[in-house]
Design a protein around this nucleic acid. Structure first.
Lengths: 212, 212
DNA sequence: AAAAAAAATTGAACGCATTCATTTTTTCAG
DNA sequence: CTGAAAAAATGAATGCGTTCAATTTTTTTT
């Protein structure tokens, strides 16, 4: 049976996360003061730091949730991709983009990206890049699936192209988070143009009729 | 004739920038305290803030110098690119990479990237992205030059591919700055693999002999 | 059930970027 | 040269994330 101590710990953890998440959503990550989070969670500032390493740690918890859900959804696309290379890539990337503002605001994303770059040796950063790598791998897996099926040229370097495409979708997403006025639809359109440019190059070479 | 006031202002400006640059190089951007910079520049903390908006402003001055020099060098490559698409892209990108640690450390780059993402409405950010855009445009210009010359397919979307390639070289560079142990040679090799994957797709279609 | 040990809570104190009211220096009109 | 006005310099004060020595609560031991 869970002891008092254990139960209280779980309750406080939840309480802090809930309070932080709410405040981040209301006033933003930067403007959310630790005192305010602690107060809302009915805990002292010192106790807050007993539960979370620092402010960034809170953000990481939320980012992890977001990316894990999106990875899960992405699996379905990779398992059964649309018919054309263009449609398949757009389907996967849309999965990512469309989910992106469910738990996080643009400001929270910006902060997460900034923190991950600035302090690479931090647990925050390590975890963030683990998630990034998983997404990039999913893009590569999609490309490989398309190659096996003959939708795109087999001689293309799927790993390299997966990395390139992920870097690009990431850069476009960063641009999206940096423009508060930009709607998701604009992001999708930009991505569609880039995907079209790439898939235009990826069509398999025509094979002479009757060739083995 | 320049008055006393004007002359002193210029001298102090130079003094602060020199002191900051030296300290950044010695102890890093984050560890460089404003008091220390001010003291080294023989100026009070208050005066420091009279000359620079904030600490990031110092970094921006150094980043600007770096990127401007590299853009200048890049022009030469775009004006007279190597014979193959692969060699041309590698030449341009190497120009960027090889210059990158002249004025800045990896930590300074990381900080600059992080700041530019985190506070997009800041003068820092605006200037940083102006520089980024200029670099991306240079990649696109190179591609267009190669198209005109027939080195790569004319039906490719140069603007989109330029953006994709720039996003990728940027992502690889970010990875480089985040690994203190990684040498420039590793970065170049990664980029070479990606460039090879892309240029493999960019070869112009064979034209039947004798076609107009 | 009392005492000792272990674990967790607490808020005052610290470091550091930035701000601001006050003082000093420079300019310039008379 | 003098005194008023303008500009710049100054360092103490502020805000905020994080740390830590002291206190309180919970668990274990006897």
């Amino acid at each position: 049976m869970a002891g008092l101590r254990e139960r209280q710990k779980a309750k406080r953890n939840r309480s802090i996360l809930t309070a932080a998440s709410a405040l981040f959503g209301q006033v933003g990550y930067e403007a959310a003061r630790i005192d305010a989070i602690a107060e809302a969670a009915e805990v002292s500032v010192g106790t807050f730091y007993n539960y979370f390493e620092n402010k960034a740690d809170l953000l990481l918890a939320i980012v992890s949730m977001e990316v894990e859900e999106v990875l899960h959804q992405g699996e379905a696309v990779v398992a059964a991709p649309p018919a054309t290379a263009e449609a398949a890539l757009l389907a996967l990337i849309s999965t990512y983009y469309d989910h992106s503002l469910v738990y996080l605001t643009k400001e929270m994303w910006r902060t997460a990206m900034a923190l991950s770059i600035q302090h690479p040796e931090t647990p925050f950063s390590r975890r963030y890049f683990e998630l990034d790598a998983a997404l990039a791998d999913q893009v590569t897996a999609l490309l490989r699936g398309l190659q096996v099926r003959g939708t795109i040229r087999r001689d293309a370097d799927a790993a390299a192209l997966g990395a390139v495409i992920f870097a690009d979708l990431n850069a476009l997403f960063a641009g999206f988070t940096m423009d508060e006025a930009m709607p998701l639809s604009s992001l999708s359109m930009q991505m569609a143009a880039h995907v079209a440019a790439l898939t235009g190059l990826l069509a398999p070479p025509l094979r002479p009729v009757g060739a083995s």
